[in-house]
Nucleic acid binder design. Structure first.
Length: 423
RNA sequence: GGAGAGGUCGCGUAGUCUGGCCUAGCGCGCACGCCUGGAGAGCGUGUUUCCCGCAAGGGAACGAGGGUUCGAAUCCCUCCCUCUCCGCCA
């Protein structure tokens, strides 16, 4: 959420930022209009409340029955008017909050201008794509042939866009998860295991609600929501908290499954395991002082890159342009690995600096060491790689002509020393 | 799921029966000052957050949300959470 003061004082900056994101700037004027109305109601209501408070005290002290009764009558009317105003105020604030809640973050000035994903900027390529002396197969051929992926069983027990990992497939994914968590711990992160279901307020704090409600699974009976990413519970860990400056930064990593309805991408990527309703992901998350967040973004990008590099996967780093930037982000790097079977780059990690966008929504602050008022801190999030796509990349990049898969060295300790997966 | 006890200004508590003098006392902690060679003790002062306002000042919050009332931490209702015991269960 943006600071309401920013909209009051620099509405043009916010309008421009919406335009840069290829969005309509009209909400800015709605906010200004509602904010003006809000202040009118507040001023009248507070004046009347001040009057009621002081007269009520007089009533408490008054000995004169007639005078007392007169004041009670008068205050009853004042009370009615206050109720009216409070109700009008409540409605205006609800509308204001509603509009403000769906305005995206202001892009960092260093985020390149661009219309859509085609204008994202490739910063560099790392590693050489492997040269095959045979036709590399896509994972949807490799996986079932090796008994690693079973698409039919996923559909049978749940439905489309669900799959079952089996034998070495299940074990390879578990190896990736365990290895990544350990890597992130070495990189300075503290591992967290969180609930996979959260309440609405937690989703609001991370910026998922109200705007992305359609993408979320919701249990109506208990009013709990399945997490679409570990970013949500990790943000929520410190809702309403005030940190001492000395205890920052906080670096967390967590593995969770992620649940997404994918209504927006119905019909896209339906084949294989690239886009499912349930997928596993290891996430990195940082709470830090505002002046540290630039450096933390670079650290997190480096940490994510190390994951790809250590797996021996060729990858490239992109910087998202304004038109493709996520809702809460000020600046984002995507890391993509090459998929020789699908013949495309797969986004396995997205690393973002959200500035104070989430911390304002979730009310997460810190107290400066020199004392004084508490300040909002900055948050960053990044995938320590999404599993299905990483699994795709490993299968397709490490495939041999005979259909077997070489297990990347770093994963072997979690694979019981297995070096090659064969049919 | 049943029974009971609770949720108050960082922490611990008082206040709730008997509504107004309670945004709220006390202790601890913390900050600053005095004192001291220095420290401690002691003494003094201060110590929540948000909102409206140029300011003076004002409003709001005692788990959350409703209600009663001129007036609610205090009375009523709903919900949430914590603890104890019982039941059930991986």
């Amino acid at each position: 959420m943006l600071d309401i003061n920013m909209l009051r004082e620099q509405p043009d900056l916010v309008r421009q930022s919406l335009v840069k994101r290829q969005m309509d700037a009209a909400p800015v004027d709605q906010v200004l209009e509602l904010d003006a109305q809000r202040r009118v109601f507040i001023q009248e209501a507070e004046q009347l409340k001040a009057e009621r408070n002081s007269v009520s005290k007089e009533i408490g002290r008054s000995k004169d029955a007639a005078e007392r009764q007169a004041k009670i009558e008068a205050m009853r009317l004042v009370g009615d008017r206050i109720s009216q105003l409070d109700e009008q105020l409540r409605q205006v604030e609800e509308s204001l909050h509603g509009v403000l809640s769906v305005i995206p973050n202001i892009p960092d000035p260093r985020t390149p201008l661009g219309k859509d994903e085609d204008e994202n900027v490739v910063l560099r390529n790392v590693g050489q794509p492997r040269q095959f002396d045979f036709e590399p197969k896509p994972h949807w051929d490799l996986g079932p042939a090796l008994g690693m992926i079973d698409f039919e069983q996923g559909v049978k027990i749940t439905g489309s866009r669900f799959y079952v990992l089996s034998g070495p497939g299940a074990r390879l994914q578990r190896a990736l998860i365990a290895w990544m968590l350990d890597l992130h711990i070495r990189q300075g992160y503290t591992e967290k295991y969180t609930p996979f279901m959260v309440k609405a307020q937690t989703l609001f704090g991370a910026g998922q609600l109200p705007k992305f409600q359609d993408n979320l699974y919701h249990d109506i009976e208990e009013d709990l929501w399945m997490v679409p990413t570990a970013e949500v519970p990790l943000t929520g860990l410190h809702m309403e908290d005030v940190f001492d400056e000395a205890s920052l930064p906080r670096l967390y990593t967590a593995y969770t499954p992620c649940f997404r309805r994918e209504k927006m991408s119905a019909g896209r990527d339906v084949r294989g395991i690239k886009r499912g309703h349930q997928f596993d992901k290891v996430e990195m998350y940082i709470f830090c002082k505002p002046e540290e967040s630039d450096a933390m973004l670079e650290k997190m990008r480096t940490d994510a890159e190390q994951t790809c590099a250590a797996l021996g996967l060729p990858y490239r780093v992109k910087q998202l342009c304004t038109g493709d930037l996520g809702f809460g982000a000020r600046m984002t790097y995507d890391i993509e690995v090459w998929s020789p079977g699908l013949q495309e780059w797969l986004e396995v990690s997205s690393v973002s600096n959200d500035g104070d966008f989430q911390s304002r929504r979730a009310n997460i602050k810190y107290r400066p060491a020199e004392g004084g008022k508490t300040r909002l801190l900055h948050t960053l999030n990044g995938s320590g790689l999404g599993m299905p796509r990483t699994l795709i990349a490993v299968l397709e990049n490490y495939q041999q002509a005979d259909g077997s898969i070489i297990v990347p060295k770093v994963l072997r300790p979690w694979m019981g020393g297995v070096e090659t997966i064969t049919p």
